[in-house]
Simulated assay, not measured.
Amino acid sequence: MARTVARVIVDALQELGVRHVFGVVGDALNPLTDAIRTTDGLDWVGCRHEEAAAFAAGAQSQLSGTLGVCMGTVGPGSVHLLNGLYDAAKSRTPVLAIAGQVPSAEMGSDYFQEVDNDMLFRDVAVFRATVTSVDQLPRMLESAVRSAVSERGVAVLTVPGDLGDRELADDRPARFPRARPVTRPDDAGIREAADLVNAADRVTLLVGRGARDARAQVLELAERLSAPMVLT
């Protein structure tokens, strides 16, 4: 059974473990908000302003270590996301923003409230794209999520209001990587760092995002060295 664009997006969010989508309802988002309404385990969190929605998505991402998701409708709705998305970008946390757009046949015609989202989000986003054909959706959604997660930044996917209810001719699930990449120095580098620490009389720890998943180990090291800690 073929799925609509809105259903493909919502199913993908569920697969990714997303539980909340923050935003302000608008016409271009109606298919998406309705798909969320009929989906168990995925809640729409209505905000009074799109800026607050973007800040909330970024905060949730930072606190949970997972992908934050927010939405803004055509024109001003999407523009209002900017401040919160800049905060997420500077905090290096993955956020997916789904932006509404005027009907696809009206794009480029200076239609009422039309904004060039790809240009608008150029500075803040590691990925930005506008869906112009329904069958582009799975691949574009994959690219948006992968970019946000791997580059720890903001991805903006723009969906024209008339495409949300359309069914995909080539319906396939969006596919996402399951394992998080792990970066570590080689054994020689770790040994050299340990020797430097052991040889020092007094040590102060500067702890950054690379130690995010090693809280217990960092605290144990600080206690063993009687070292004060500074966070980036």
Score class of each variant (00 low, 15 high):
204 T>V: 11
178 R>P: 05
221 L>D: 15
23 G>P: 05
129 A>G: 02
221 L>Q: 07
15 E>Q: 15
4 T>V: 03
29 L>N: 10
82 L>K: 05
34 D>Q: 14
148 A>I: 06
172 R>K: 14
223 E>T: 10
10 V>H: 08
142 E>F: 10
124 V>K: 03
115 V>A: 13
19 R>Y: 04
129 A>T: 09
218 V>T: 15
110 D>N: 12
193 A>H: 08
82 L>A: 14
19 R>S: 13
217 Q>D: 15
125 A>S: 13
197 V>W: 04
38 T>C: 00
19 R>D: 06
166 R>G: 03
210 G>P: 01
13 L>H: 07
14 Q>R: 15
145 V>A: 11
158 T>C: 00
218 V>Q: 11
200 A>T: 04
116 D>Q: 11
99 A>P: 00
43 D>P: 01
117 N>K: 09
27 D>L: 08
199 A>K: 01
197 V>C: 04
224 R>M: 07
127 F>K: 06
42 L>S: 05
8 V>F: 05
43 D>V: 09
91 S>M: 11
167 E>L: 10
34 D>W: 06
106 E>V: 00
144 A>H: 07
232 T>K: 07
112 F>G: 05
231 L>V: 15
19 R>V: 13
9 I>K: 00
52 A>I: 13
54 A>I: 02
101 Q>E: 15
156 V>M: 06
27 D>H: 10
103 P>D: 13
33 T>V: 15
82 L>F: 14
44 W>Q: 02
140 M>S: 01
46 G>Q: 15
214 A>P: 02
167 E>D: 06
30 N>R: 11
160 P>R: 08
5 V>S: 08
37 R>M: 11
87 D>I: 00
198 N>Y: 08
110 D>Q: 10
109 S>Q: 14
206 L>K: 02
105 A>F: 05
90 K>L: 14
145 V>L: 11
12 A>W: 00
96 L>T: 04
230 V>E: 04
6 A>L: 09
151 E>F: 11
54 A>R: 09
129 A>Y: 09
105 A>G: 00
145 V>R: 09
82 L>E: 09
230 V>C: 05
11 D>Y: 02
29 L>F: 06
209 R>V: 15
20 H>Q: 14
229 M>K: 08
209 R>Y: 09
165 D>R: 09
137 L>G: 01
52 A>C: 04
138 P>T: 05
